[in-house]
């Protein structure tokens, strides 16, 4: 998979860019869902959104989530539809994947793998970073 939409390294933050960083797991916390909600609203308000999953947050992206084994609504359907809501920059941190032995083949196809230093760049280059 190729990397795309990585913001350029500029000294000034990109006006109108928000990085939403999700580091909490999908089912034990509601933070990730509420983070994605904010990402969707920011995109609707013409902000450029980087949606970044790190640490336990990467489990939101597992592509084998199963309706039968969980009572609540699953997260992957909403995440698969993100590009239709003008969020095309969805990233996952490679160090976190290594930490939990997750391969890219286990994750949603629309996600790009980036390094921790790339994510640092996103945060530095964004107008704001909000953490969930």
């Amino acid at each position: 998979m190729t990397l795309h939409n990585i913001p350029q390294n500029t000294e000034q933050p990109n006006e109108g860019t928000v990085t939403i960083l999700i580091n909490s797991p999908p089912f034990s916390h509601i933070d990730g869902k509420e983070g994605v909600d904010l990402a969707l609203v920011c995109a609707a308000f013409d902000q450029t959104v980087n949606l970044v999953f790190v640490d336990e947050g990467i489990f939101h992206l597992i592509n084998t989530q199963d309706d039968d084994s969980f009572l609540d609504k699953l997260h992957d359907k909403q995440l698969k539809a993100l590009e239709y809501y003008d969020i095309s920059s969805v990233f996952v941190e490679s160090e976190s994947m290594e930490k939990y032995s997750i391969n890219q083949s286990s994750l949603l196809e629309t996600v790009d793998v980036v390094s921790q230093s790339d994510i640092k760049q996103f945060c530095n280059n964004s107008q704001h970073t909000v953490i969930f």
Partner: peptide, 20 residues
């Protein structure tokens, strides 16, 4: 978020290192 400028200051003690 669109109207305010510059970086945020985050008071989350458990923030990952990738956060300014």
């Amino acid at each position: 978020l669109a109207k305010t400028s510059k970086k945020d200051l985050n008071f989350n003690l458990e923030a990952p290192q990738s956060t300014p």
